[in-house]
């Protein structure tokens, strides 16, 4: 088959395949079919657990205790929104709004503060710049456990222990190394002519940052935004330590129900599903914009 390949050049397909002999093409078909089957099975492995959560959240307690969620395929009548209405009536909504109140400012603050720092690292020369940036890179992997005890002390001193601002500031601080790293690398790739022209015109540095560089950074800001949003929205540990009951996000509210998992499925399943709808919607809708930005060669 290799001789055939050699005699028919220039027929490369997008998959990198080259025109080959009949035998190998038949083998490809069979192998291809096998690959499809394997991938379908694998896709089911990844899909069914989440589908299970959704269906369990839509079934009554009695049904969940007596039969598997997959019986809904044959008996769809068992599905009901009762769990959701009970959950929403029980005050779960306040933890939803706490999640929003933590996530939105934590995301915006990280973008703003990191963009400024990233700009300085990329476009302003100052002594020790490279060394400081290495420190930022070093901080990327610092486990948040290291800060749990000291920051709890500090929050006690500042009087913000248990409150939403405390949780937000913690997320901002630990989101910064990644954010600065990402944005600095993006800013570095912006053509210097743009900046030089602006500087020649005598524009103030903050104005160049705000009107020239930051608007160009939309793709990077979008990807950073979605990382940070997901990270904060999905966090459990920080909330567990720093958010008291009034300030607790959904993750912590649900975690407190885990001890009696068996009897609390009617709370946990719909709660977990509600908590993942917004991340999923954002994730899938940002996907396009996000990857377009990447394909434009913007993020370095």
């Amino acid at each position: 088959m290799t001789t055939l390949t050699a005699s028919q050049p220039g027929t490369t397909g997008s998959a990198g395949g080259v025109q080959r002999g009949i035998a190998s093409r038949v083998l490809d078909k069979v192998g291809g079919g096998l690959v499809q089957v394997i991938l379908i099975v694998l896709a089911l492995f990844w899909l069914l657990p989440t589908l299970g959560l959704l269906v369990v959240s839509l079934r009554g307690d009695t049904d969940n205790n007596s039969s598997g969620w997959w019986t809904f395929f044959t008996k769809p009548a068992q599905l009901t929104f009762d769990n959701y209405s009970n959950l929403l009536a029980s005050g779960f909504t306040s933890s939803f709004w706490n999640t929003v109140a933590i996530t939105v400012p934590a995301t915006i603050l990280v973008i703003g503060i990191a963009a400024m720092a990233g700009y300085a690292f990329a476009w302003i020369e100052f002594p020790g710049r490279d060394g400081l940036f290495l420190v930022v890179i070093a901080l990327l992997v610092v486990p948040i456990q290291i800060a749990l005890i000291p920051i709890a002390k500090m929050y006690g001193f500042l009087g913000i222990f248990g409150s939403i601002p405390g949780v937000v500031l913690f997320h901002v601080a630990f989101g910064l190394p990644f954010a600065i790293f990402l944005l600095r690398n993006f800013f570095v790739g912006i053509p210097k002519e743009l900046l030089e022209a602006a500087r020649m015109d005598g524009a103030a540095e903050w104005k160049i940052f705000a009107t020239v560089v930051f608007p160009l950074a939309k793709p990077a800001v979008a990807s950073l935004g979605i990382f940070q949003f997901l990270w904060v929205w999905n966090d459990l540990l920080v909330a567990l330590v720093y958010a008291d009951t009034d300030a607790q996000p959904m993750t912590k509210a649900l975690q407190s129900q885990m001890r009696q998992f068996g009897t609390n499925v009617d709370i946990l399943a719909p709660g977990a599903f509600l908590s993942l709808i917004i991340p999923l919607v954002l994730f899938f809708s940002f996907q396009r914009y996000f990857v377009q930005g990447l394909l434009a060669g913007s993020v370095k």
Binding site: A43, L53, F283
Partner: peptide
Amino acid sequence: FKLVVFMPMAVSLLASGVIFRLV
């Protein structure tokens, strides 16, 4: 396929935990 396999990344580990407690 990639979207399906990639999707759990958007889900909180708590929700993943609940999902696997059920599994």
